[in-house]
Design a protein around this nucleic acid. Structure first.
Lengths: 152, 152
DNA sequence: TATTGTTATACTCTATAACTATA
DNA sequence: TATAGTTATAGAGTATAACAATA
């Protein structure tokens, strides 16, 4: 079947977005088989390592989940030794979520396997098209986070 | 904040895909407030109108849900008068799901409001970038459906 | 024996409500 | 009074298992 022909025919954007979510999960979930909370657990680990988002409420906001689910996430990652809760001296209500040394090492392994899985995900999509897609996707993701936040 | 700068920084593809799912839902869900099963119900209506996918098993496969949930979907859309089950004379096990006249009229209204919502979703993204993104998205969606199907 | 549709049940993920402690 | 974290409970969405009818 011709890809471009189907691209023109498939005007249901919602279906397309749902499908890439499923397809991405299909290639990447095996990588997260042993990661607590799977893909979301990995995203949390990625976030505390790469972003300056540390409190549980801020992490919930960034990951797009309710703040009441964060304790469960952090509990499970902490039990696996991937992150730890640190007291914030500036505000004793706050817990700073930080990756442990083991968490960073595990993240390094996982992120390489994620890259491999993403190559499978994109398949033979031309490099230029892939990089353009990923760039727009990132722009739209940040925009989407704002759109979703407005709903509350 | 500069969009392009954040695009380079955000290398967590899984997070981006999850976010656009949430952002798209945020703009489009109000349109589906009165549609049984919401966005998925609309996708089902879209499919039986635009594709030659009629049996419940084939619809489940296309929409990426287990076939055991289809009876609930079809029941609800049928109760709302949007679709009807027709007997397939060629195979009496099969039920052909077809949009009713009312279903087609409702779909026409809804699809216009969906297009409006999608304009909000894309915001000020340049037309060329948007059309390139949607084209690649459709290609990747079809590819993703195959990837997800391979998992079974 | 395999497939379509169906139903009941169970599981996963997430949100709601209510609480404690700090600010 | 408001906010960060926590806990228990409930809900939405989906899958698993088992069955009847038909191929």
């Amino acid at each position: 079947m011709n890809d471009r022909a189907t691209a023109l025919e498939a005007c249901d954007l919602g279906w397309s977005i749902a499908m890439i979510g499923r397809g991405y999960a299909a290639v990447v979930d095996p990588v997260f088989a042993d990661v607590p909370r799977g893909a979301r657990g990995y995203q949390l680990l990625h976030t505390v390592i790469h972003k300056s988002i540390r409190s549980q409420t801020a992490l919930a906001d960034y990951l797009g989940v309710d703040r009441t689910v964060m304790p469960y996430f952090v509990d499970d990652l902490q039990a696996a030794g991937l992150v730890e809760r640190q007291d914030d001296p500036a505000d004793r209500r706050r817990r700073i979520v930080a990756a442990t040394r083991h968490g960073r090492a595990r993240y390094a392994e996982l992120s390489e396997r994620v890259l491999e899985a993403e190559r499978v995900f994109f398949g033979d999509l031309p490099d230029g098209e892939r990089s353009a897609f990923v760039a727009t996707l990132a722009t739209m993701a940040h925009r989407s986070r704002e759109l979703a936040a407005q709903r509350r």
